[in-house]
Structures are given as C-alpha cells and as structure tokens.
Amino acid sequence: MSYSFTLNGQTVEATTPGLTPLLTVLRDQHGLQGAKLGCGEGRCGSCTVLVDDQPVAACLFPVANVAGRAVRTVEGLAAPGAPLTPVQDALLDHGGVQCGACIPGVVMTLTALLESEPAVDAATAKEALTGNICRCTGYVKIVEAAVAASGRGDQA
C-alpha cells in the first residue's frame, strides 16, 4: 500500500505495508536517522517525532495512520548551516547533551511543549519529558534548558 503524508513540510509517499512502524519508514526510506530505535516498545522516547504537532513514539506508530497528516522530525527544525532553534541552542548552552542518543526525541518533545505552552516551568517540562529516557544527563540540565528556551530562565 502507498501512504501520502507531509514530512518536514514536503509531501511524500511511503509504499510499504500499513503496519510498518513510522520509524522504519523515516530511517530506512527517507534516510532521516535523527529519531532512534531504542526500546522499540514505546517506553524510551528516543524515536519521538511529531504527528500533527503532537509527540508520538514512531516505533509504535503504524504508517497507515500517518496518511494525510504532518510529520516533523529533528531534521526539519533547522536546515544545515542555518541557526538552531531556541530549544536546540538552550540544550547546548546548558550542557544538556552528553552522548546525544536521546536528544532528537527530547528536542521534539520540548519543541511541541514550547509551541503549545507560552511559559514553561520546571514542573511542566518534567511532566512533558516523562516519556523520554536519558541515561547520561540526569535530566537537570535538560529541564533547565527547557525553561530557559521558553524565556523563563529565572525558574530553572
């Protein structure tokens, strides 16, 4: 079957069985390797992408259900060589990135959060990040970065 959707703003067509995980389509057919296969069962968040602006676990999202929707991945946030987004800058500035494996997922979760919440405090950021596991940073720097990126650095 063939499924049409927008991927980082461009219309694409995926020709693959409908139960194929969106993550497989992104990585193997479109070469977008930002979203990672961690647990493959919805628990770690390393595969987080946005579908119609909401974070989802791409490892569990059947491609059939993406038809007609808008998918955004970390690659769509800033073009190569272009300035990073405030979330990406804040993560770097606050030392929120160590090995980086979780970061594409974290960035997408925080991007959705900042788009929907005008002012993010530490509690809101933590709640939003409950589905993103980071084995390196201990989360504190990531939460600080989220608060700073929303322009409320005083609440970190």
């Binding site: 069985p17 409908g18 139960l19 194929t20 995980p21 497989t24 493959g40 059947p62 059939a64």
Partner: peptide, 13 residues
C-alpha cells in the same frame, strides 16, 4: 530490532 511483524495488510475505511 523492531518487534512487530510488518507484513499484515491495513485497510482504512
């Protein structure tokens, strides 16, 4: 390894 078998057909009425 992704843990699902990807061959089943999906219809979308």
């Amino acid at each position: 390894m992704l843990t699902t078998v990807v061959s089943p057909d999906v219809r979308s009425p």
